[in-house]
């Protein structure tokens, strides 16, 4: 049986990977590189275990055409012109105390400050807003990488604290809007690519709630037993 510590590392790495991939999926239209990887058997099998599949899409359309189609779909869904589904938190949540939420709204500022509190800044070269779904995912990815480091270095308390911070970001931000956003995309998507990735994202966000609570409980239980 794996040690609790290895369990923690394994789970943190797994979550890192999913946040990382989803950050990529929502950052921009897929690159050729990304598309090739998603076409791989391993990923196809993984989707099948979730009862999802992009096989038909990949088989029926040439890679070149698919790149073009997905670029158009990405633009249509997330950029406009017209009634796109803004991939920014502040467009999907209600502000407090009469502050109107819109582009670069209250939520954007909260997210920015949260990230800054964790020592991270939106890079100068990045031209988007901090509450873009892919930046929020990237932030979780970065927290999780730190968590992996903590477990690896056997910094138990630090690891546990990071999970709590992840949980707080999840509670205050991700849980507030990602599912709502995904539902809108699932409804509006023309092809299976973004629809299925939004299904996955939604399921993942639901799963995160359970898993983070489990991790915190498990950690407390272990601490209690070892004490």
């Amino acid at each position: 049986m794996a040690s609790p510590r290895n369990d923690m590392i394994e789970m943190a790495k797994a979550r890192t990977n999913v946040y990382g991939l989803l950050a990529d999926i929502f950052r921009a239209e897929p690159s050729q590189d990304l598309l090739s990887k998603l076409k791989d058997k391993e990923f196809s099998i993984a989707l099948h275990t979730l009862n999802l599949s992009l096989d038909e899409l990949f088989e029926s359309t040439s890679q070149k055409q698919l790149l073009e189609d997905l670029a158009i779909e990405y633009t249509y869904l997330f950029i406009g012109p017209g009634s796109h589904i803004s991939p920014h938190e502040s467009m999907h949540t209600q502000a407090r105390f009469g502050e109107v939420n819109e582009l670069w709204g209250v939520a954007t500022v909260d997210v920015k400050k949260f990230m800054e509190g964790a020592g991270l800044k939106v890079a100068e070269s990045f031209t988007g807003m901090p509450d873009h779904i892919s930046i929020e995912f990237e932030f979780m990815q970065r927290l999780l990488l730190k968590e992996v480091e903590a477990w690896t270095a056997d910094e138990q308390e630090f690891g546990a604290n990071i999970i709590k911070i992840e949980k707080r970001f999840y509670d205050e931000h991700l849980s507030q809007w990602v599912s709502i956003f995904c539902d809108k995309v699932i409804k509006a998507a023309k092809g299976p690519f973004y629809r299925q990735f939004c299904e996955v994202t939604k399921a993942f966000i639901d799963f995160e709630k359970v898993i983070m609570q489990d991790l915190i409980d498990e950690k407390e239980e272990t601490d209690r037993l070892s004490a």
Partner: peptide
């Protein structure tokens, strides 16, 4: 299983070039 496959996709270098966040946690 899904996370493993995601990791493979990422390990191939995807996602490294488009980082939006600078600095260290």
């Amino acid at each position: 299983i899904f996370a493993g496959a995601s990791g493979t996709a990422l390990a191939a270098g995807v996602g490294k070039s488009k980082k939006a966040l600078a600095g260290n946690v």
